[in-house]
Protein backbone atom coordinates (compact mmCIF):
# COMPACT_ATOMS: atom_id res chain seq x y z
CA UNK A 1 0.00 0.00 0.00
CA UNK A 2 3.00 2.25 0.48
CA UNK A 3 3.44 3.01 -3.21
CA UNK A 4 -0.04 4.07 -4.21
CA UNK A 5 -1.58 0.68 -4.84
CA UNK A 6 -3.53 -1.74 -2.69
CA UNK A 7 -3.53 -5.54 -2.72
CA UNK A 8 -6.73 -7.51 -3.04
CA UNK A 9 -6.82 -8.61 0.58
CA UNK A 10 -6.51 -5.03 1.83
CA UNK A 11 -9.11 -3.92 -0.73
CA UNK A 12 -11.57 -6.42 0.72
CA UNK A 13 -10.76 -5.33 4.27
CA UNK A 14 -11.37 -1.68 3.36
CA UNK A 15 -14.65 -2.64 1.70
CA UNK A 16 -15.77 -4.52 4.80
CA UNK A 17 -15.09 -1.49 7.00
CA UNK A 18 -16.90 0.77 4.58
CA UNK A 19 -19.86 -1.62 4.56
CA UNK A 20 -20.00 -1.86 8.33
CA UNK A 21 -20.26 1.87 8.56
CA UNK A 22 -22.66 2.14 5.64
CA UNK A 23 -25.00 -0.39 7.25
CA UNK A 24 -24.93 1.67 10.42
CA UNK A 25 -25.95 4.94 8.80
CA UNK A 26 -28.01 3.64 5.89
CA UNK A 27 -25.61 4.86 3.27
CA UNK A 28 -26.85 2.27 0.82
CA UNK A 29 -23.73 0.26 -0.02
CA UNK A 30 -23.99 -3.49 -0.36
CA UNK A 31 -21.60 -6.31 -1.23
CA UNK A 32 -22.42 -8.34 -4.32
CA UNK A 33 -20.66 -11.70 -4.36
CA UNK A 34 -19.80 -13.23 -7.71
CA UNK A 35 -21.26 -16.70 -8.01
CA UNK A 36 -18.71 -19.50 -7.90
CA UNK A 37 -15.81 -17.34 -6.76
CA UNK A 38 -14.58 -15.44 -3.73
CA UNK A 39 -14.65 -12.20 -5.69
CA UNK A 40 -17.28 -9.51 -5.50
CA UNK A 41 -17.91 -5.79 -5.59
CA UNK A 42 -19.48 -2.94 -3.65
CA UNK A 43 -22.72 -1.63 -5.09
CA UNK A 44 -24.82 1.45 -4.47
CA UNK A 45 -27.89 2.77 -6.26
CA UNK A 46 -28.69 6.44 -6.12
CA UNK A 47 -31.37 8.69 -7.53
CA UNK A 48 -29.95 11.99 -8.70
CA UNK A 49 -31.84 15.06 -9.66
CA UNK A 50 -30.52 16.69 -12.81
CA UNK A 51 -31.94 19.83 -14.46
CA UNK A 52 -34.41 18.63 -17.06
CA UNK A 53 -32.74 20.36 -19.99
CA UNK A 54 -29.54 18.50 -19.14
CA UNK A 55 -30.93 15.03 -18.70
CA UNK A 56 -32.89 14.96 -21.94
CA UNK A 57 -30.50 15.40 -24.83
CA UNK A 58 -31.53 18.31 -27.05
CA UNK A 59 -28.70 17.95 -29.48
CA UNK A 60 -25.99 15.41 -30.15
CA UNK A 61 -22.43 16.55 -29.92
CA UNK A 62 -19.10 14.83 -29.62
CA UNK A 63 -18.19 14.87 -25.93
CA UNK A 64 -14.73 16.20 -26.70
CA UNK A 65 -15.80 19.02 -28.98
CA UNK A 66 -15.12 22.59 -28.00
CA UNK A 67 -18.73 23.62 -28.01
CA UNK A 68 -19.53 20.89 -25.52
CA UNK A 69 -16.55 21.61 -23.32
CA UNK A 70 -17.52 25.20 -22.66
CA UNK A 71 -21.25 24.74 -22.60
CA UNK A 72 -21.75 25.41 -18.91
CA UNK A 73 -25.07 27.17 -19.06
CA UNK A 74 -27.16 24.13 -18.17
CA UNK A 75 -24.91 22.61 -15.60
CA UNK A 76 -25.87 21.91 -12.05
CA UNK A 77 -24.65 24.63 -9.72
CA UNK A 78 -22.39 24.02 -6.77
CA UNK A 79 -25.33 24.96 -4.54
CA UNK A 80 -27.62 22.33 -5.99
CA UNK A 81 -24.89 19.75 -5.65
CA UNK A 82 -24.47 20.57 -1.96
CA UNK A 83 -28.18 20.22 -1.34
CA UNK A 84 -27.99 16.77 -2.81
CA UNK A 85 -25.11 15.76 -0.57
CA UNK A 86 -26.67 17.08 2.60
CA UNK A 87 -29.91 15.36 1.88
CA UNK A 88 -28.23 12.00 1.53
CA UNK A 89 -25.82 12.33 4.41
CA UNK A 90 -28.43 13.63 6.86
CA UNK A 91 -30.60 10.65 6.32
CA UNK A 92 -30.04 7.81 8.73
CA UNK A 93 -32.66 5.52 7.32
CA UNK A 94 -31.28 2.15 6.27
CA UNK A 95 -33.35 1.91 3.12
CA UNK A 96 -31.34 3.37 0.26
CA UNK A 97 -34.33 3.94 -2.00
CA UNK A 98 -36.16 5.88 0.68
CA UNK A 99 -33.10 7.86 1.53
CA UNK A 100 -32.74 8.91 -2.06
CA UNK A 101 -36.17 10.47 -2.05
CA UNK A 102 -34.61 13.37 -0.23
CA UNK A 103 -32.20 13.96 -3.08
CA UNK A 104 -34.81 14.19 -5.77
CA UNK A 105 -37.24 16.42 -3.96
CA UNK A 106 -36.85 19.23 -6.48
CA UNK A 107 -39.96 20.94 -7.86
CA UNK A 108 -41.57 19.06 -10.72
CA UNK A 109 -40.72 20.36 -14.16
CA UNK A 110 -37.42 21.97 -13.24
CA UNK A 111 -35.46 18.77 -13.02
CA UNK A 112 -35.67 15.13 -13.84
CA UNK A 113 -34.54 12.17 -11.84
CA UNK A 114 -31.91 9.74 -13.03
CA UNK A 115 -30.98 6.46 -11.46
CA UNK A 116 -27.27 5.85 -11.03
CA UNK A 117 -25.81 2.49 -10.15
CA UNK A 118 -22.23 2.54 -8.87
CA UNK A 119 -19.96 -0.49 -8.53
CA UNK A 120 -16.53 -0.59 -6.93
CA UNK A 121 -14.41 -3.42 -8.30
CA UNK A 122 -10.84 -4.45 -7.75
CA UNK A 123 -8.47 -4.39 -10.71
CA UNK A 124 -5.73 -6.96 -10.23
CA UNK A 125 -3.87 -5.49 -13.23
CA UNK A 126 -3.56 -2.01 -11.77
CA UNK A 127 -3.88 -3.13 -8.14
CA UNK A 128 -6.38 -0.37 -7.47
CA UNK A 129 -10.13 -0.06 -7.07
CA UNK A 130 -12.10 0.87 -10.21
CA UNK A 131 -15.38 2.74 -10.29
CA UNK A 132 -17.97 1.39 -12.75
CA UNK A 133 -21.38 2.98 -13.11
CA UNK A 134 -24.43 3.12 -15.32
CA UNK A 135 -27.38 5.45 -15.38
CA UNK A 136 -30.91 5.41 -16.67
CA UNK A 137 -34.06 7.46 -16.60
CA UNK A 138 -36.88 6.26 -14.37
CA UNK A 139 -38.56 4.95 -17.52
CA UNK A 140 -35.55 2.68 -17.98
CA UNK A 141 -33.82 4.38 -20.89
CA UNK A 142 -30.05 3.96 -20.54
CA UNK A 143 -27.97 7.10 -20.63
CA UNK A 144 -25.52 7.40 -23.49
CA UNK A 145 -21.96 8.57 -23.02
CA UNK A 146 -22.99 12.07 -24.15
CA UNK A 147 -25.80 12.12 -21.59
CA UNK A 148 -23.37 11.09 -18.88
CA UNK A 149 -20.89 13.81 -19.78
CA UNK A 150 -23.70 16.31 -19.40
CA UNK A 151 -24.12 15.26 -15.77
CA UNK A 152 -20.44 15.82 -14.94
CA UNK A 153 -19.61 19.02 -13.09
CA UNK A 154 -17.65 21.48 -15.31
CA UNK A 155 -14.74 21.63 -12.88
CA UNK A 156 -14.18 17.92 -13.39
CA UNK A 157 -15.16 17.86 -17.03
CA UNK A 158 -12.19 19.80 -18.32
CA UNK A 159 -9.76 17.69 -16.34
CA UNK A 160 -11.35 14.45 -17.43
CA UNK A 161 -11.59 15.38 -21.08
CA UNK A 162 -8.05 16.61 -21.44
CA UNK A 163 -6.73 13.11 -20.92
CA UNK A 164 -8.56 10.71 -23.15
CA UNK A 165 -7.45 7.59 -21.36
CA UNK A 166 -8.47 8.86 -17.93
CA UNK A 167 -11.83 9.99 -19.12
CA UNK A 168 -15.14 8.32 -18.67
CA UNK A 169 -15.57 5.62 -21.28
CA UNK A 170 -17.81 2.67 -21.83
CA UNK A 171 -16.45 -0.65 -20.72
CA UNK A 172 -17.74 -4.15 -20.22
CA UNK A 173 -18.40 -4.97 -16.56
CA UNK A 174 -15.89 -7.76 -15.85
CA UNK A 175 -18.35 -9.72 -13.70
CA UNK A 176 -21.69 -8.96 -15.37
CA UNK A 177 -20.60 -8.72 -19.01
CA UNK A 178 -22.88 -5.70 -19.43
CA UNK A 179 -22.12 -2.22 -20.73
CA UNK A 180 -21.06 0.18 -17.99
CA UNK A 181 -19.15 3.43 -17.84
CA UNK A 182 -15.92 3.55 -15.90
CA UNK A 183 -13.07 5.81 -14.91
CA UNK A 184 -9.87 4.39 -16.28
CA UNK A 185 -7.64 3.17 -13.42
CA UNK A 186 -4.24 3.64 -15.05
CA UNK A 187 -3.53 6.92 -13.19
CA UNK A 188 -5.03 5.92 -9.86
CA UNK A 189 -1.71 4.82 -8.40
CA UNK A 190 -0.23 8.20 -9.32
CA UNK A 191 -2.82 10.32 -7.52
CA UNK A 192 -3.09 8.01 -4.52
CA UNK A 193 0.64 8.08 -3.86
CA UNK A 194 0.88 11.63 -2.41
CA UNK A 195 -2.31 11.07 -0.44
CA UNK A 196 -0.96 7.94 1.22
CA UNK A 197 2.40 9.60 1.78
CA UNK A 198 0.69 12.52 3.53
CA UNK A 199 -1.21 10.16 5.78
CA UNK A 200 1.95 8.24 6.60
CA UNK A 201 3.81 11.44 7.46
CA UNK A 202 1.05 12.30 9.91
CA UNK A 203 0.89 8.76 11.28
CA UNK A 204 -2.68 8.37 10.19
CA UNK A 205 -4.40 5.15 9.18
CA UNK A 206 -6.09 5.44 5.82
CA UNK A 207 -8.92 3.44 4.38
CA UNK A 208 -7.62 3.20 0.82
CA UNK A 209 -11.00 2.56 -0.77
CA UNK A 210 -12.72 5.40 1.06
CA UNK A 211 -9.96 7.91 0.30
CA UNK A 212 -9.89 6.90 -3.33
CA UNK A 213 -13.67 7.15 -3.52
CA UNK A 214 -13.63 10.65 -2.08
CA UNK A 215 -11.46 11.64 -5.04
CA UNK A 216 -13.13 9.87 -7.95
CA UNK A 217 -16.73 9.63 -6.69
CA UNK A 218 -17.66 13.33 -6.86
CA UNK A 219 -16.58 13.48 -10.51
CA UNK A 220 -19.53 11.29 -11.39
CA UNK A 221 -22.00 12.47 -8.77
CA UNK A 222 -21.11 10.09 -5.98
CA UNK A 223 -20.36 12.20 -2.93
CA UNK A 224 -18.83 10.38 0.02
CA UNK A 225 -20.99 11.24 2.99
CA UNK A 226 -19.38 13.45 5.59
CA UNK A 227 -20.49 11.04 8.27
CA UNK A 228 -18.48 8.38 6.56
CA UNK A 229 -15.35 10.48 6.35
CA UNK A 230 -15.65 11.62 9.96
CA UNK A 231 -15.81 8.09 11.25
CA UNK A 232 -12.55 7.67 13.16
CA UNK A 233 -12.18 3.96 12.70
CA UNK A 234 -12.66 4.34 8.98
CA UNK A 235 -10.69 7.41 8.39
CA UNK A 236 -9.17 9.31 11.29
CA UNK A 237 -9.15 12.74 9.73
CA UNK A 238 -11.54 15.59 9.21
CA UNK A 239 -13.19 15.90 5.82
CA UNK A 240 -11.67 19.34 5.29
CA UNK A 241 -8.15 18.07 5.74
CA UNK A 242 -8.74 15.25 3.37
CA UNK A 243 -10.59 17.00 0.64
CA UNK A 244 -8.97 20.34 0.09
CA UNK A 245 -5.63 19.17 -1.25
CA UNK A 246 -7.28 16.44 -3.28
CA UNK A 247 -9.77 18.64 -4.98
CA UNK A 248 -6.96 21.01 -5.81
CA UNK A 249 -5.00 18.33 -7.54
CA UNK A 250 -7.98 16.96 -9.41
CA UNK A 251 -8.61 20.29 -11.05
CA UNK A 252 -5.11 20.46 -12.39
CA UNK A 253 -4.93 17.59 -14.81
CA UNK A 254 -1.26 18.17 -15.60
CA UNK A 255 -0.26 17.27 -12.06
CA UNK A 256 -2.56 14.28 -11.83
Amino acid sequence: MSCGVVDEEEFCRCCRLLLQHSNGVGDGWSWEAVRGSDEGYLKKTLLRSVPAERSVPQKHKEPGSDSEKFDYCHLQTEEQEKQGVDASSDSLRPDAEEEDDGVCGAPAGSSSVLQFEYHILYSCSYRTPVLYFRASTLEGRSLTLEDVWRTVHPNYRLGLQSRPLDAITQQEHPFLGQAFFYLHPCRTEEFMKPLLQMARDQNRQVNYVLSWLSVVGPMVGLEVSLECLKQQQLHPTTPQQLRVPLRGSIQQPKTL
Binding site: V34, R35, G36, S37, C124, S125, E172, P174, F175, L176, G177
Partner: peptide
Protein backbone atom coordinates in the same frame (compact mmCIF):
# COMPACT_ATOMS: atom_id res chain seq x y z
CA UNK B 1 -20.52 -22.61 -18.51
CA UNK B 2 -19.95 -19.38 -16.61
CA UNK B 3 -22.18 -16.34 -16.07
CA UNK B 4 -19.26 -13.96 -15.96
CA UNK B 5 -17.82 -13.00 -19.34
CA UNK B 6 -14.28 -14.12 -18.57
CA UNK B 7 -11.79 -14.97 -15.86
CA UNK B 8 -8.82 -12.69 -15.45
CA UNK B 9 -6.52 -13.02 -12.46
CA UNK B 10 -2.85 -12.84 -11.59
Amino acid sequence: TNDRPFIQRL
